[in-house]
């Protein structure tokens, strides 16, 4: 059974790897520059944005939640840090303040869901609008240029020379490793599985689901803000428009990575594959010079495809279960 279980996980991963190969081959045919070392590194760098957000979103989706405000939080954090830098504050301090503000925003999302009993979709739709509004207000809707050398150098730093691995990619990989461990091995992770699998049973088993829910919302906002700050450093600019879609891509990545919308199932390593797949897809569309408007259509179709697969996966599972009971009873 242990073998079978591993097989099942690698089965899911295998599908993603095959899909990734197809995407890479397809876009390589369209644009010769797609499958080059430089571009692959670019894809990885770009995927840190979706990736960091997807870690939080994965935890949230596993407990049956979602967060549509992550993009707005990221935008807010990027603009906030950029403005602070122009006022001469230290970038480490600014980053920490941005993360603390994001944690508060996440807490508010969580309270809207647990105390006001709003549906996560609506709660975060509300906060999305508010955070986005503040992000625009801070900079009057215009991108804020960042001149702080220390900050931008850090965000663009590479390990192992000019052609080495970017630090942001390494940080993201470390985050994935830590949170893969948390989800799979710790009490907090186990509570996530329990709440997502059956909230009432989890509550009756003595699990404080409100606290866990709050933590998941806080986590998602903090990760999104972190992604927003890194992006600002990489782009030399805090742009309120540049993060608008990261929650959408993160949700797609998590769902492709096997995190079901019903909750209770998922694993971080497969989500990492989902993230790379989504980013390769997005970058490929860019390099194939597909109009940005068609890219919206394509992204929507990608998520729809993923959800459809998810639906059939659930249905087959239920069918198999019923057949098993008919044999065994």
């Amino acid at each position: 059974m242990k073998n079978k279980l591993n097989l099942k996980i690698s089965g899911n991963a295998l599908v993603l790897i095959v899909a990734l190969i197809i995407v890479v081959v397809l876009f390589s045919v369209v644009n010769k520059n797609f499958f080059t070392y430089t571009n692959m590194i670019n894809v990885l760098v770009a995927s840190t944005l979706i990736g960091l957000t997807a870690i939080g979103i994965t935890f949230l989706m596993m407990i049956g939640g979602t967060d549509l405000s992550a993009g707005a939080v990221a935008a807010f954090a990027g603009v906030f840090v950029a403005i602070g830098l122009n006022m001469g504050y230290n970038w480490v301090l600014l980053t920490l303040i941005a993360l603390a503000l994001a944690a508060t925003m996440g807490l508010i999302n969580g309270l809207l869901v647990t105390k006001l009993k709003l549906v996560p979709f609506i709660a975060t739709l509300v906060s999305q609008s508010i955070w986005k509004g503040f992000a625009y207000l801070m900079c009057d809707g215009k991108p804020v240029t960042v001149n702080d050398k220390g900050f931008t150098t850090f965000c663009k730093m590479r390990v192992g020379g000019a052609n080495g691995i970017p630090l942001s990619v390494i940080i993201t990989i470390i985050c994935f490793a830590i949170f893969a461990y948390i989800l799979a091995k710790t009490r907090f992770g186990r509570k996530i599985f329990a709440i997502g699998g059956n909230p009432e049973a989890a509550r009756l088993a003595g699990i404080d689901s409100q606290k866990v829910t709050l933590l998941c919302y806080i986590m998602t906002s903090v990760f999104a803000a972190f992604a927003g700050v890194i992006l600002a450093g990489r782009m030399n600019s805090g742009n309120p428009n540049s993060n608008a879609n990261i929650h959408f891509d993160a949700i797609t990545a998590a769902n492709l990575g096997g995190v079901s919308m019903v909750g209770g199932v998922g694993s971080i390593p497969t989500v990492a594959l989902g993230v790379i797949l989504v980013q390769a897809f997005n970058s490929g569309l860019n390099m194939a010079a597909v109009s940005p408007y068609w890219q919206y259509v394509a992204r929507g179709m990608l998520l729809l495809g993923s959800l459809t697969i998810d639906f059939f996966r659930q249905r087959n599972r239920e069918k198999r279960l019923l057949e098993d009971s008919m044999k065994n009873l």
Binding site: R190, K191, F193, A194, N198, A201, A202, L204, A205, G264
Partner: peptide, 20 residues
């Protein structure tokens, strides 16, 4: 509705009451 956590394994359904 109130007992099993369906997707979790038998072992984890047992341990979930004693996580602390």
């Amino acid at each position: 509705l109130q007992g099993i956590i369906p997707r979790l394994s038998v072992g984890r359904n047992i341990s979930v009451g004693s996580l602390d």
